[in-house]
Design a protein around this nucleic acid. Sequence first.
RNA 1: GGGAGUGUGCCCGAGUGGUUAAUGGGGACGGGCUGUAAACCCGUUGGCUAUGCCUACUAAGGUUCGAAUCCUUACGCUCCCA
Length: 380
Amino acid sequence: MPADKLFSYDIVATDPATSARAGVFHTAHGDIETPIFMPVGTKATVKGILPSVVEGLGAQIVLANTYHLAMRPGAETLAELGGVHSFMNWHRPILTDSGGFQVFSHGDLVKLTDEGVAFRVDDYDGSHVFWTPERNMDIQQKIGADIVMQLDQCPGYPAERSFVERAVELSSMWADRCFAAHTRPDQALFGIVQGGMHLDLRLRSLRHLEECGDFPGYGIGGYSVGEDHETMFETLAPLASEHMPVHKPRYLMGVGNPTTLVRAVACGVDMFDCVLPTRTGRMGTAFSSTGRMNMRNAKYAHDAGPLDEACTCPVCTGGFTRAYIRHLVTQKEMLGGVLLSMHNIYFLLDLMRRARRAIIEGCYKAFVDDWMASAAAADY
RNA sequence: GGGAGUGUGCCCGAGUGGUUAAUGGGGACGGGCUGUAAACCCGUUGGCUAUGCCUACUAAGGUUCGAAUCCUUACGCUCCCA
């Protein structure tokens, strides 16, 4: 790939009636076509699914997590083994989250200062770690993903405005330091917009990132942390459709609800990741064109149909019945979680593929309307 | 044939005289899961004409103010001796 193409975001089509766009983001391990859903493989594995199968489902890029990989097997080990791609035997693009979300989800175990974040690692070995933005960049560069995220603070919801404001301040400060510390040329560093449900704080956060430097893409963090969907779109819609740089990919972090994806694409969001399809799949939930299905339910015990008649995934077209999948799930057989994870990932990948096609055809508005009128929309 | 032990809700199994419709598990049924502390967590699980009532700890009888708990008999199961 020509050097000037690396990390550029080519917009292939814009929808006339919405803010949706279809594009291509160029990375050192290949292009990714947007809008896109990215399956999550926290510990360098999409739980239960072979990389070749993940690829076969249509995944173009997967996530891994800096915090978890730094704990095990460790950044130095990964560097020694040639980086995360060869380690996990996935040779397409990879994105690592910085661990900012773990700062949020570990709550009381975490102590934040201007300088960085201190963790008590009780989920691994009880040790104490201290991360500065520089240390975090060093780790992510050793892990070697194609896209890396700045260290940030993700406030929950509800939250005092002053708390969110402080999170923006800290995240901005850390963005500067991550930007300065990041040197690996084959790796794209994304800044992250915070600001909770306050548009002015979101814009302040975004403005700071734009002034900080030329980030090749922007994460939108701090959503799906407890607020309802309408509350989220009150600020997400203007942020993404009116204020974010046009020629940079916009990545809505941690969102995997199908209806939210469809609506966010209409606002101009390009990338998503979420544990929802894999976690709920392992726990027995199937996404479908008619809504969520709890495959533990007794009503599926004698159901010889596929999970979703409308689905073309390898599970639905491969002869696996609802009755069989319910059997696997209720008996806690590992194949149940594997099949449901595959199906659910495919569901979101396919949803985004169809969205992309609609955008290119200039009819994304109708796509959204159809989705919102469908049986599934109400259930997601 | 003789002796010892044991019998609790769908199953296993606590409880050996008084807040016991009865601890725990499992199963069954249902719910949740959003930059993965998650192949996990939570709830329900005798019946009803339902702020109460009825039926319940193998069965029948007894002792007691009060019994799953003590006594008698029967039945089932387990082990030991013949």
